[in-house]
Design a protein around this nucleic acid. Structure first.
Lengths: 175, 175
DNA sequence: CAATAAGTTCATTTTTTCTTGAACTATCTG
DNA sequence: CAGATAGTTCAAGAAAAAATGAACTTATTG
């Protein structure tokens, strides 16, 4: 370790209370969205750190394997929860947290929700065709259900743009 | 099997194409929200069925165990995705699907998201106190982060009422 | 009340998902 | 170039989640 750059300290040692709390918070938040614990912990630590962190920091401070850290960082980056920072004289990649709720949610939804939901739209199409094979006495009822189903998709698509505005905008005064 | 009531047929046999498609759709949707496959399949079948179904129907038609079916139904009921129907001369409990997207989403969020997120609010409080133990040169930056974090919570709480309106209301004409 | 049917519970097994760690690529550094 | 350093990959192990099935509880019914 060439201890030339004072800005590149290993940031070692056990977690401070503050860091521990944020790691724990990250873990809960992760489980709320059914993401792996380690990913939540990594985000929490990133969030708690005033300086950007490198892969090895996660390994040592969270006591996880290099493999987990590497994959976790890739994942956090892919979903835009964390962003790489390049510092001269340091060939490691450092990471700092994404602070925009909107981008965070987009990331989560892109990774976990939308991919599965996407295909659903196309399938309703196909369901309508199959409708002709159901006993005539039920056809009408089931057609109504498919209409409802289609409506769900439309409504879902209506909500996001709306939500986006709130999430990216400033906090408005109460009332 | 006392074959007296013609309305209480076992609804046996393999799944029709229509049913299969909806079961598959249910499974994808479930995985989008990180719910068990079996739960998605059960909802799909319920949705595809013009008549309410009993526990045994799920067991036989989806080829799952009685245990799974029982637990799955309890879960679907708890999250309001399915509702019990009582029919005279049938001592079984029959289930039909919830057709309100709003209620469905409330159910999912109540079961999986809110419980975890709830406690987060209280924790931010605690984090502020711990702030006094961090090195003074970082205190300001970290305080800003906590403010942001608090803002996330507030924004989240702002989105839901908005979304609710869209989800429960009628589909408006395009533009 | 004995037999049957509906439904629940929960210890065990199965399946899926996470994590690990060792081997590997690539890059710097003296 | 030899030796660190940074990071990736992926087979295998560990842990968590879901499904099974047998034993039970409660009704119901002849």
């Amino acid at each position: 370790m060439t201890d030339t750059a004072q800005s590149t300290k290993p940031v070692a040692g056990p977690l401070s209370d503050f860091e521990q709390s944020l790691v724990a918070l990250g873990v809960s938040a992760a489980s709320a969205f059914s993401l792996p614990k380690s990913v939540g912990a990594m985000f929490g630590l990133t969030f708690a750190s005033p300086v950007p962190l490198a892969l090895d920091d996660y390994v040592h401070r969270l006591d996880i394997s290099k493999g987990s850290a590497s994959q976790g960082l890739k994942f956090l980056q892919r979903m835009g929860a964390v962003r790489p920072v390049y510092v001269s004289n340091d060939r490691r990649t450092l990471y700092e947290p994404e602070m925009s709720l909107r981008r965070l949610l987009i990331g989560i939804l892109n990774e976990n929700v939308f991919p599965h939901l996407q295909q659903s739209g196309e399938r309703v199409e196909h369901l309508r065709e199959q409708l002709k094979d159901v006993p005539k006495e039920h056809r009408e009822l089931l057609k109504d259900r498919l209409d409802t189903l289609e409506g769900w998709g439309k409504k879902g698509r209506m909500v996001w743009p709306l939500a986006e505005k709130v999430l990216s905008g400033p906090l408005k005064k109460k009332k």
